[in-house]
Nucleic acid binder design. Structure first.
Length: 423
RNA sequence: GGAGAGGUGGCCGAGUGGCUUAAGGCAACGGUUUGCUAAACCGUCGUAGGGGUCAAACUCUACCGGGGGUUCGAAUCCCCCCUUCUCCGCCA
């Protein structure tokens, strides 16, 4: 969320930012409503002051045995008026709230202006792209190995869900364990295991609500949402809290399944593991000082890359252009890995600096010294990384000519086997 | 799911309709004293939003888990919800 005063004082900048981000947000009423708001505040506060003063007089009169009937009658009128003014004020505040919670975050200055993913900027590549001889994608490979079952996933749940079987299930667990251990041991993260369902306030805090409501699974009876990413529980862990200067930057990570309705996606582009309703992900979250959050974004993105390097997966880092940068983000790097069967770059990580946008929504602050004024922290997060597409890529890139899949060395201690053989 | 007891500032804790603009304490910060530390003493000590100002000073309003209500006036009374604890029931 943007600061109300900031929007008021930088109205044109905010408008321009909305366009650059390719977002739709209506600001036409804003200035008028904001003016109204302040007028209504003055109206009602003036009367409240009067009520407070006279109430004290009434109190004094009653204590000394005087008659306060006239004053009480007067105040009855004033009280009714206050109620009316308060209702007006509340109405205007709701309207302003509705506008301001739908305004996207301000883009960082480094973000290139552009409309779609075609304007994204490739920052660098790593690893060697080796063409795959058998020309099999992960669906065909997994069928040959007997380790994934998309059909029964669809039967039991629906399309976009799958079963992992035998060594296939073990491989998934191995990938997750490997990534968590790596971030904890090599990058200094603290591991968290979090709830997979959260309340509305949490979804608002990280910016999924109100805009993305239709992209999430919602349990109506209990008013809870299935998390689309661990970012939500991990960032909201510190909601409504004041952190100490010394503990920043605070780095936490965690594994969770992620649930996404993906309501707009169909067809061949989304087959197999390319787009699913439930996938596994290790997420890194960083609560940072405002003055070095962009340095932290570089560090965090490097940490996600380390996972790909350790697994020897070719990847490229992409700086998203303004139009592709998400609602809550000020700047985002995507990591894409090369899948030799799909012959495509697949996004497996998105690393963002949200600056104070989420912190203001979720009210996460810090104090520089015990007596200084609280300031909003900067929040960052990045996938480190998402498994499904990584899983698909591991199958495709490590497929041998005999149809077996060799397990990357870093995963072998976690798997307990070094290859999966074709049936 | 049922019954009961709680939720007050960074923390502890008083307060059951009006001298409470939330007592008192701890912690924190500034100062005095002191050879140093400690102690003692004095002062400061919340958040948000208005007004005001070049900026301040200053001033007003709201906030006692959240939301409604009663009243001239609510931390205090009523209703709904959230949450913690104890007991009972059900259950992986």
């Amino acid at each position: 969320m943007l600061d109300l005063k900031f929007v008021r004082d930088n109205f044109d900048l905010v408008k321009e930012n909305i366009e650059r981000k390719n977002e739709k947000a209506d600001l036409s009423e804003f200035l008028l409503l904001e003016e109204k708001r302040r007028e209504f505040i003055q109206n009602t506060e003036k009367l409240k002051n009067e009520r407070n003063v006279v109430s004290k007089e009434i109190s004094n009169l009653k204590r000394t045995g005087g008659n306060a009937d006239n004053l009480i009658a007067d105040m009855k009128v004033v009280s009714d008026k206050i109620k009316e003014f308060d209702d007006n004020l509340k109405e205007v505040e709701l309207q302003i709230q509705d506008i301001i919670t739908r305004l996207p975050n301000m883009l960082a200055e480094f973000v290139p202006v552009g409309k779609s993913e075609e304007d994204n900027k490739v920052i660098h590549h790593w690893g060697e792209i080796v063409p795959q001889k058998l020309k099999m994608n992960h669906i065909e490979i997994s069928k040959a190995l007997g380790i994934l079952d998309f059909e029964r996933g669809a039967k039991v749940s629906g399309s976009g869900f799958s079963f992992y079987i035998g060594k296939g299930a073990k491989l998934e667990r191995a990938i997750i364990d490997f990534m968590i251990d790596y971030h904890v041991e090599k990058h200094g993260y603290t591991e968290f295991w979090s709830p997979f369902m959260v309340n509305e306030a949490s979804m608002f805090g990280t910016g999924q609500l109100p805009k993305m409501a239709e992209d999430m699974y919602f349990a109506q009876e209990d008013g809870m949402y299935l998390i689309p990413t661990a970012e939500v529980p991990l960032t909201n862990y510190h909601r409504d809290e004041i952190l100490n200067f010394e503990e920043l930057p605070k780095k936490i990570c965690g594994y969770t399944p992620c649930f996404r309705r993906e309501s707009g996606s169909y067809g061949k582009e989304v087959h197999g593991f390319l787009r699913v309703h439930q996938f596994n992900k290790v997420e890194m979250v960083n609560f940072a000082l405002p003055e070095n959050s962009f340095e932290q974004l570089e560090i965090l993105t490097n940490e996600a890359e380390d996972i790909l390097k350790a697994l020897n997966v070719p990847y490229r880092r992409i700086l998203l252009c303004s139009g592709d940068t998400s609602f809550a983000s000020a700047m985002t790097y995507d990591l894409e890995i090369w899948a030799s069967g799909e012959e495509k770059w697949l996004e497996v990580s998105s690393c963002s600096n949200f600056i104070d946008f989420q912190a203001r929504r979720a009210n996460i602050r810090f104090k520089r010294t015990p007596s200084s004024k609280p300031e909003f922290v900067h929040t960052l997060n990045g996938s480190g990384v998402a498994t499904s597409r990584l899983y698909a890529t591991i199958l495709e890139n490590n497929l041998q000519e005999d149809g077996n899949v060799i397990i990357p060395e870093a995963l072998r201690p976690y798997c307990g086997f070094d290859k999966i053989e074709a049936k």
